[in-house]
Design a protein around this nucleic acid. Sequence first.
DNA 1: CGAGACATTGAATTGCCTCAAGATTAGTGG
DNA 2: CCACTAATCTTGAGGCAATTCAATGTCTCG
Lengths: 258, 258
Amino acid sequence: MSNSSPAAMRACAERKSAMPDDEVSISDLPQGCRDCDVRHSGICAALTTLELCNFAKSARHTQHRPGESLAYEDGEVTSYANVTGGIVKLSRLLSDGREQVVGLQFAPDLMGRLFAETNPLTVQAASDVGLCRVPKSVLEAMIGSSAALKQRLLDQSLRDLDDAREWMVTLGRKDARQRVASLLLLIAKRCGVSDGTEPDTVSFELPLTRSDMADFLGITLETVSRQITKLRHDDIVRVVNHRQVTIPDMARLVACAG
Amino acid sequence: MSNSSPAAMRACAERKSAMPDDEVSISDLPQGCRDCDVRHSGICAALTTLELCNFAKSARHTQHRPGESLAYEDGEVTSYANVTGGIVKLSRLLSDGREQVVGLQFAPDLMGRLFAETNPLTVQAASDVGLCRVPKSVLEAMIGSSAALKQRLLDQSLRDLDDAREWMVTLGRKDARQRVASLLLLIAKRCGVSDGTEPDTVSFELPLTRSDMADFLGITLETVSRQITKLRHDDIVRVVNHRQVTIPDMARLVACAG
DNA sequence: CGAGACATTGAATTGCCTCAAGATTAGTGG
DNA sequence: CCACTAATCTTGAGGCAATTCAATGTCTCG
């Protein structure tokens, strides 16, 4: 359960300090709640320890392998889930079998379309993924009783909307090279580890296949591959084993992303 | 102030009945509040008459011509606005001068990025537009005190997110013909008047220039023009005066949109 | 009527896709 | 440990849809 990215941990720390705990102590929580980091991540940071305790009684942790389906398009929504680790892929399937990825979710995002009867998207694990599931009715009841939780969910959906619109610019106006650079940049920001040098060098392991990348970027996997090769020749990225990526200078990648 | 679309009026009626008024009567409202339909539209439908009264004291109505800027990218957010009529264009400007439209807003949507210090998008009137502006601090205070209002804003942002992701499929995977058909479909749904025949015939006036359409669809205006010509030859659409559009059979347009 | 904005059409170019073959990596069982 | 297979990735050649550049056509409004 510890492939939470550094970015997620940072976000988590912020949130924790912004929402101090009340009087109930962590040791009062049931066992399942101390077992994991759910307490400090995602929506849970908006809950008082008492509320969290209630939440933990209904929550169930699961692990998933890359490619595994977590929810089906038009399937009934029965639960929501906090992403505790790994990367989740949200996509729409087209009638001709092609796929468009419309978003990625990282820890500690909440997964699942709130208040909907059926899921509008296909949801799959892109990497190894950890989830903390909670029944639809339980979470919705908590949203009704906690203004802080509702506020947090409003904040996340506004941020997701910003991200989606940002990506529309990539899909609508950028060429293949800029698209690939944009995706590397997005992943580097969320999953990257900086070595603290100047210029800024960042490393990460790609959680997506070339095919996933292509489906997110609206181009073919061959084009993705060709562009990565070119970016490599220009020393914008260094790649070993197809998956292990180093960005020698983030500023140059940003410039490439347009 | 009555270029509110039929769709908007329908939405409005639903909302009104879902949230019945309390004891205070409409005649108790200050003058500015009875002057217009703000009472029955958008976020206002989530307010009690008492709250609405307070809202109306701070609200100001404005009218805008097509192309007029309503907010600038990175500009400070000082107020929010309910769209009372017409169509508002949300877009991002690129360094090379190109533009990507990332969303359209119709009455009775709320305009403005909630809780942000600066506006992440450029906002322009696409058609003649009516707004009902309210200071940032006033609306935010009301959100803090009204769970119903917060819920409504959460619902709108979730719907906007669904729409944005839907459009990402258009930008990422559809060809020019399907894109143009998708846009005509979107506008027909929001602004179209059906004549009640079978098969379903719908008419509307295009609120966008070819250039706006191109910027929303991620293609050039020449390509938009060519595709409209082809759709016309196939009798998917009929166009007079470049702007007055009739869809003789919605089902065929839907099929075209992919 | 004339000017300016908006829209259509044509011809040449290009960036990405399609189809096809080979290379690299990871996983499996002898 | 190595051979074998399946999955993933890379590279190449040819075709095509959309772009670019340029010219013409059509509305609107003073």
